[in-house]
Amino acid sequence: MSRLQPGGGTEEAGQGKQRNEGIPLGRVGGVPVILAWSWFAIAAFIVLVFSPQVRAIIPGIGSLAYLVAFSYAVLLLLSVLVHELAHALSARAFGWPTARIVLNLWGGHTQFENFQASAGRSLVVALAGPAANFALAGLGWVVRPLFAGDPVGWLLTDSFVLVNLAVAVFNVLPGLPLDGGRLVESAVWKATGSQEKGTVAAGWAGRIIVILLIFGFAVLPALMGRRPDLVFVLMMVLVGGFLWSGASASIAQARLRLRLPAVTAGGLQVRAIGLPATASVAQVAAARQDSPEAEIILTAATGQPEAVVDLQALHSVPAAAAGTTPAAAIARALAPGAYVPEWAAGQELIQYLARVAGNEYAVIDRQSRVTGLLLQDSVVRALTGKVPGRR
């Protein structure tokens, strides 16, 4: 499976992140490979589950069964690494910068930097992973006869073939977050012209796959009177939970991207009036009488927004003192640079707001005049599909 994740930051910060993720294994084809700490959990699980099976298949092997089972975990790790390298190297052929490969509890994923994709190229990169596993399974089948007289070698080679076939077939199932989900995504993308709509469709396909897998491998056998294998049921629940979570995340992210074009500073702003920072409370009260629904934003001599008048505090100032009390005394300071143009929208607006402290931003027009106040809460609600709230 692959994951799009923005990169960036200093080299030292990147190295620190890699160390936190797990053990750096070096670079393969120029791509950093990280062995996540969670991989050791799945390795221990494989050793505990498969070592009794090794003893049953190879009588008299004794404690070496643990080593054989661990070797199986390592072969699975190498199979996943080749799978992810296929993603990374095929992406590089299209000029997509690859951040890293992470091998973890669920197998692994390839993280990419920002890039421009097309439906066809996205599909090629996604299916390169399963194709690599089919190739490994074929290679294992070819060398399998060489271990005819070696029970350990035969067992590991046979397991290598089966695990690569399983990884390949499982990943081509047509639903996200599996690689085969890109087939559904690309088809809908081509038909509608929207990658986001394709992602939503592929995410729902992934949810349907989870339901079918659990019904077919857990519910149906129970209905037929078969006694379920608890280990197998546990694995199905874990895998099903992982797939459902990944599918749901894909749907949520796609819906967020669909809403981005409608997220504009001008569309979400609360109307506001700009007054000089030297204004008095009386002048603010007069402006409020003319526009009772408007916020009041104080501006510096340069016209730059500086603060937002606290309307509750405004009413607490006695009328006799309003003319001599500066409006700045009852105002909340805006963070440096906390103002945006009316036409700022989409990803550009979100990225800018993420870099500015605070949760209030003045909105200005093309003449740098204050026209509104944008609240972080309104932006978040717009992104989550809820009606933007007003103060």
Rank of each mutant, 00 (worst) to 15 (best):
L4P: 01
K17I: 08
N20P: 04
P24A: 05
V31L: 08
V31K: 04
A36P: 04
A36M: 00
S38F: 08
W39A: 05
I42K: 07
I42Q: 03
Q53W: 06
V54W: 00
I57Y: 09
G60T: 12
A65G: 09
A65P: 01
A69S: 14
V74G: 12
L75V: 15
S79I: 02
A86Q: 05
W96P: 01
R100C: 03
V102S: 03
L105F: 15
W106N: 08
W106E: 05
G108M: 07
Q111Y: 13
F112N: 01
A117M: 10
R121E: 13
V124M: 11
G129H: 04
N133F: 05
N133W: 03
G138C: 06
W141K: 08
V143D: 12
P145M: 05
F147W: 13
A148Y: 15
A148K: 13
P151L: 12
P151D: 09
G153Q: 08
F160L: 14
A166S: 13
A166C: 12
F170K: 05
L173F: 14
G175S: 07
P177M: 04
L178S: 09
S186N: 02
G193T: 06
S194A: 03
E196C: 10
K197I: 00
K197P: 01
T199V: 08
A202G: 02
W204Q: 03
V210C: 11
G216F: 10
L223A: 12
R226Q: 13
P228I: 02
D229F: 06
V233W: 13
M236K: 04
V237C: 11
L238G: 06
G240T: 09
A247K: 00
L256W: 04
T264L: 00
L268N: 02
G274S: 13
P276Y: 10
S280N: 10
V284G: 04
A285Q: 09
A285W: 04
A285I: 06
A287C: 08
R288F: 00
S291Q: 14
P292F: 07
E293D: 13
I296R: 00
T299D: 07
T299G: 02
V308C: 07
A313C: 00
A333P: 03
A335F: 10
W343T: 13
W343S: 15
Q351G: 11
Y352P: 01
V363T: 05
R366K: 08
V370S: 00
L373M: 09
L374A: 07
S378A: 15
S378F: 01
V379L: 03
R381V: 03
P388V: 01
G389H: 10
R390L: 12
R390S: 11
R390M: 02
R391M: 01
R391F: 00
